[in-house]
């Protein structure tokens, strides 16, 4: 039983990383990125491709993916997604959904449908003994630590830096923020750039932890979305809590019956939606 709970929390750590980028983009510009999961997979494949091309150490290549993701996110928001923002949700949904199809088929063309992983040798299987009955993988523990650190860093960025202030300002009222001299288009671009660094971290760790294949994206998007909604908008600790709840319920569900694990997670999400539509720890509205 304890093992199930601990595994659930470790899974929640991974889901936190899937969800933080989504939470950031939701929070700052009310943008629903339906290609979130596909970008995570794209980052993993970028690392896999980079290792194959350069023959470099997996850790170094993975680190090199992060600034690339930052630049990519900035350009994507600045030159494509900014044009889709507005009261009507359709343009941004169609564009990100189109991107999702493009990424999936591009990866399929380049890498084929076979599942692949980022080879990191023994680290992937190493474990530490806790007590007599419990053995925890080192990598899942690292993922959890990164997730908590990333959540804390984001929360700090929002609360204590000038950039965080401008994020909150354009989120609360774009027009007033622009009157105060902020360029909302650039602020949005920076928010997406940071979200894409988080997406890249999530993708690289997912690729190390298990295998990835081009069609994995949509499921990751749904998990990320559920974590954000369960936790409540605008709160990163809320997103972390939502991811933990999702990881725990899925793990308990898998334990009861392997066929119903993910179903169980979806149901808990829908139940939260009915009973507490604002999420468990909401901060911003709308």
């Amino acid at each position: 039983m304890i093992e199930t709970l601990v595994q659930g929390l470790l899974l929640g750590g991974l889901y936190t990383l899937f969800a933080l980028g989504q939470s950031l983009m939701f929070g700052v510009m009310r943008l629903t990125n339906t290609a979130q999961g596909d970008f995570i997979i794209l980052a993993a494949f970028a690392a896999i491709g980079g290792i194959a091309l350069t023959g470099g150490a997996p850790g170094l290549v993975a680190l090199a993916v992060l600034p690339l993701a930052f630049g990519f996110g900035y350009a994507l928001q600045r030159y494509v997604l900014n044009g889709t923002l507005g009261k009507d949700p359709l343009p941004s949904l169609v564009v990100t959904f189109g991107l999702s199809i493009v990424i999936q088929n591009l990866l399929l063309e380049v890498f084929s449908a076979d599942p692949r992983a980022i080879e990191i040798g023994g680290l992937a299987t190493q474990g530490v003994e806790v007590g007599d009955a419990l053995s925890l993988g080192v990598l899942p523990l690292v993922v959890l630590a990164v997730a908590v650190a990333a959540t804390a860093a984001l929360q700090w960025l929002f609360a204590h830096t000038a950039l965080g202030r401008s994020f909150r300002a354009v989120s609360d009222d774009r027009e007033i923020a622009e009157l105060m001299g902020l360029d909302a288009r650039k602020v949005y671009a920076l928010a997406t750039a940071i979200a894409f660094v988080l997406i890249a971290i999530a993708g690289v760790l997912q690729g190390m932890r298990t295998t990835v294949s081009p069609s994995d994206g949509p499921l990751l998007l749904l998990f990320a979305f559920e974590a954000v909604i369960i936790g409540g908008m605008g709160s990163f600790w809320g997103t972390l809590a939502g991811a933990m709840i999702l990881g725990l319920t899925q793990q308990i569900g898998f334990r009861l019956d392997p066929g119903w694990g993910i179903w169980f997670g979806h149901i808990v999400f829908l139940a939260v939606l009915v009973l507490r539509p604002q999420g468990l720890f909401p901060k911003t509205k709308g």
């Binding site: 629903t32 949509p218 749904l222 979305f225 999400f269 829908l270 009915v274 539509p277």
Partner: peptide, 18 residues
């Protein structure tokens, strides 16, 4: 209907998965 806009879109997707 608890969700609207972009959230409605992904929420309905989750329902279809259920």
């Amino acid at each position: 209907f608890r969700l609207s806009g972009g959230y409605f879109a992904i929420g309905t997707w989750v329902i279809a998965e259920v």
